[in-house]
Design a protein around this nucleic acid. Sequence first.
RNA 1: GGCGAGGUAGCAAAGUGGUAAUGCACUGGUCUGCAAAACCGGUAUGCGCGGGUUCAAUUCCCGCCCUCGCCUCCA
Length: 465
Amino acid sequence: MPLTLHDTLTREARVVRALDGGTLKFYCCGPTVYGPAHIGNFRTFVVQDVFRRVVERDGTATLHVRNITDVDDKTIRDSQKAGLSLADFTRHWTEKFHADCAALNLLPPHVEPGAVAHIPHQIRMIEKLIAKGHAYATSGGVYFKVSSFPQYGRLSHLEDREIKLGASTAATDSDEYDKDSLSDFALWKARKPEDGANFWRSPWGEGRPGWHLECSAMSLEYLGEDFDVHSGGVDLVFPHHENEIAQSCCATHGRFAHHWFHVAHLMVDGGKMSKSQGNLYTLEDLANRGYTPEEVRYVLISGHYRAPLNFTFHSLDAARHALQKMARFQKSALERLAIHSVEPSGPGPFASAWETLNHDLNTPGCLGEVFTTLNRLKPAHLSDSEIVEALGGLRFILQALGLKLPELKEDTATDVPTEVATLAARRWEAKKNKDWAAADILRKEIESAGWIVKDGKDAYELTRK
RNA sequence: GGCGAGGUAGCAAAGUGGUAAUGCACUGGUCUGCAAAACCGGUAUGCGCGGGUUCAAUUCCCGCCCUCGCCUCCA
C-alpha cells in the first residue's frame, strides 16, 4: 500500500518511494540542545517517527538521519551561564533528549550527527560555494549570496522575498552590516568576544559555522546530494530550509531533498506555547501531573500533522481513556484465548485503519477507524482464529502508530490513612451483614475524608477522590 | 502588507459532490442493596458568513470574516 504525503514544495500529495528503489533516505532537523525539549518539539519528532514506521511497514527500509545542533548563540550563551564547557553542556541536554525520546517510544535515528563534529564538512562546503561564486567573505564572516540562486524562495512560495520595514529588527541591530544584501545569510560567523572558548579555525579566520549550514553538510555526508524526504516543523520552511536548498543545490549538482514534509505547530489552550505565558510543557512537567509519555504521544497524534493541534489537559484525559478502551479489548480477547500476547500480523480487520494512515499520514482518521472496528468486533461471537487475527491486526496498527497500551491493573492506593481504612473495613462488615443504611453512612464518611470506595466481588478498593 | 495552515457537535478531531467517523464529556438502559467499573443504546436537519455552479455542496468556484504560524538563525 503506497503512502502518500503532502509535499510542501509542490503543495500536493505525492507517493512516497525510495529514489534508489531500496532504502528511503530521510533527514530530519533535530533539536538545539540548550534545555529540555517541550511537547511542541516532540509533536514534530513523533509525527516523523510515525512516518518512518509506516514506510517500514509498507516494506521499505529507511535511512533516518536527525542532527543535533550543539553550537549556536543559545547553546554558547547558556553553557556560559551554567559554567560548563559547551561540550559538557550540550552532552547533558542531548542525554536528556534521548531519555525523552525513549519514553515517547521514538525509534532512534540511524545516524544522529552533531554540528561540532562536522565542522570540517561545513568548511569544505563553504569553500565550494566561494569557488563557484555563491558566497563571499567579509570581516564579519562568510555569507551566501542569495541573488546567485534564482530559485531562492520556491519552497516558501515567495520568489522575490523582500524585507518588510519593521518586520524584523535584526537588520538594524545586527552585526551583519557588512552583508551585500539583507537577504544574504551567514555560512561562517567570525569569532566574537562573547563566544569565549567556542571558536574554530577556518580559511576565513576563527569563528563558527552558521546554523543553516550544518544540515546541508551532514545530509550530504550521510544521504548524498539527492535524498528522498526532508522534514521539520513548519517554522523551518523559511528561512532554514530555503537556505539549506540554496546551499546544497549550489554546492553540488544535486537536487537536494525530493519531498518536503512539514509538521504544523502544537498550540496550548488555543494560543502559542511560550515560556512567558507559562504554558510551555515538557514531558517532566506532564509526568509531575500524573500523565504518562504514552498518553502524551496519543495526544500528539490525535490531530492531523498539517493542522495546528490544540493541546489541553482535557485531551490528555481523553487520551488516557481511549488507550484504556483499546487495552480492555486486548485484555478480554487475550483472556478468552488464555494466552498472554499475539505477534503483530498484517492489519487484518483493521485494514481500513491502515489504509487511512497511508493517506497522507492521517493519524486521527486511523484512530477513528481503529475504534470503529473495535466497536464492531464482538470477541464473544468470534472464533479463536478470528480473535488472533484481530489481536494481531491491532498490534500491527499500534506499532505503526508507536502506541503502547497501559496495564489495566487497578492501582490500589497504598497510603490510605488508618482512619479511612478503618471506616472502609467497618463498611465492608456492614455490607456483609446487609446493613445497607450503615454502609451508606460509612461511604459518605469515607468520601468526606477524600476517598472513594469501589466494591468488587469479594474485595473493595480505595482511591483518592 | 506578503505568504502559508486552519475554521465541523460541550471539548478534541476525521471525512465526503448525494445528505456528517471516532475519542472524551453528557444522557437512557442492563448490571449492582446503592454506587463504581463494564456492556448495549442516544446525542450536529448541521460542517465560519454571503453569493454562484449542480438534480444534489459541508465537500467545487467567487467574495468576505475570524484564528494560528512565518516574514532572517523558533519543531
